[in-house]
């Protein structure tokens, strides 16, 4: 095991532990929000895997979140006998399949801005299809999703209330670690090379489109996993989850925290969760503050908060030395 991985595991462990402490000190409303933040962290990391990791800008990430959430909700309502963990895997795969179908078509011709708009159009299509499909509850969504049970044979553990919160934190920590490993694997480095110089990497013999498609699918799987874990937590899945404003969220988190660092989007999601909590009662203010915040970050601090902190830290060290 190399040192970087050990350090990352320690960091993720600390972060997870901090999240696990929330129910001890805060009321259930805050715990609910903390669970959503944990889920959003993985959602944002999956988006940044594409943006910072492979140079693909997605404006349609909500479609994967929706794929996972609706698959989970549908299984939980119509086929509760299927084990929860199996459903989770199926839901995550649904995002991967969606990503493959879309990416197979879109990556063939489009790149850059065109690709971004295609993702937007495709997710809009998914949103419309959901609002018009009876089996998915149309505009009302699916309600009454139960908190799941896990276990083998007669040994069963009901993930109710705070227990499901613990499950969220653990699963999302593992998912984040898995994403870290992917980013730092040879494949991750190859994608980085493609991002930096597409042409040169293809001269070196890499099939650029196939690797980008792989990145797209991995990103789709993790975004769908986030959606699948979210469904039993909020116990309702509505078409809002597929709306394009949902696709803004990971962009916002990642840019706020800093896209060039792996954990930047996580920091952004946490900060944004706090901001959201602070402005929750003021209609319109939430949109406005997040918009202004995002503008300021893009125009003034392109490295995001984490980039800024690291830069300040480095300058201080240099001043000392």
């Amino acid at each position: 095991m190399n040192r970087d991985l050990a350090k990352t595991m320690a960091l993720a462990g600390l972060g997870g532990a901090a999240f696990l402490c929330v129910p001890l000190v805060a009321n259930s409303g805050v715990v609910f929000l903390a669970g959503l933040v944990a889920i959003n962290i993985v959602f944002a990391l999956s988006w940044n895997l594409l943006f910072a990791g492979a140079g693909l800008l997605s404006f349609g990430h909500s479609m994967f979140l929706a794929a996972g959430a609706y698959t989970m909700a549908k299984f939980s309502l119509s086929a509760p006998e299927v084990p929860f963990l199996l459903t989770l895997v199926l839901a995550a795969l649904s995002g991967g399949v969606l990503a493959w179908v879309f990416g197979f078509v879109a990556l063939r011709r489009a790149s850059g801005t065109y690709f971004a708009i295609l993702t937007l159009a495709f997710s809009a299509l998914v949103h419309i299809v959901i609002t018009k499909t009876d089996a998915l509850g149309r505009a009302d969504g699916l309600v009454g999703i139960r908190r799941p049970e896990i276990g083998v044979g007669s040994l069963r553990l009901s993930l109710d209330g705070d227990m499901y919160y613990v499950f969220i934190v653990l699963s999302m920590t593992l998912a984040a670690l898995a994403l870290w490993c992917f980013t730092h694997s040879p494949t991750g480095r190859l994608l980085q090379a493609i991002k930096q110089d597409r042409l040169r990497t293809s001269f070196l013999g890499a099939n650029v489109r196939r690797w980008q498609l792989l990145a797209f699918c991995v990103s789709g799987v993790f975004a769908a996993l986030a959606g699948a874990v979210m469904a039993p937590w909020s116990q309702i899945v509505s078409p809002e989850i597929a709306h394009w404003s949902m696709s803004t969220m990971p962009i916002l988190y990642a840019l706020l925290g800093g896209t060039s660092r792996f954990w930047g989007p996580a920091l952004g999601a946490i900060l944004f969760g706090m901001l959201d909590y602070g402005t929750r009662n003021m209609l319109g203010l939430a949109d406005m503050t997040s918009g202004i915040l995002l503008l300021v970050v893009v125009l003034a601090v392109p490295g995001g908060i984490l980039g800024l902190l690291l830069r300040v830290g480095r300058t201080r060290e240099e001043a000392k030395g």
């Binding site: 801005t113 840019l255 949109d287 995002l294 503008l295």
Partner: peptide, 14 residues
């Protein structure tokens, strides 16, 4: 692209 997106959010919020 993201900056203009942010500006859209400001408009909607306003």
């Amino acid at each position: 692209l993201i900056a203009t997106y942010a500006l859209l959010m400001v408009c909607i919020g306003a």
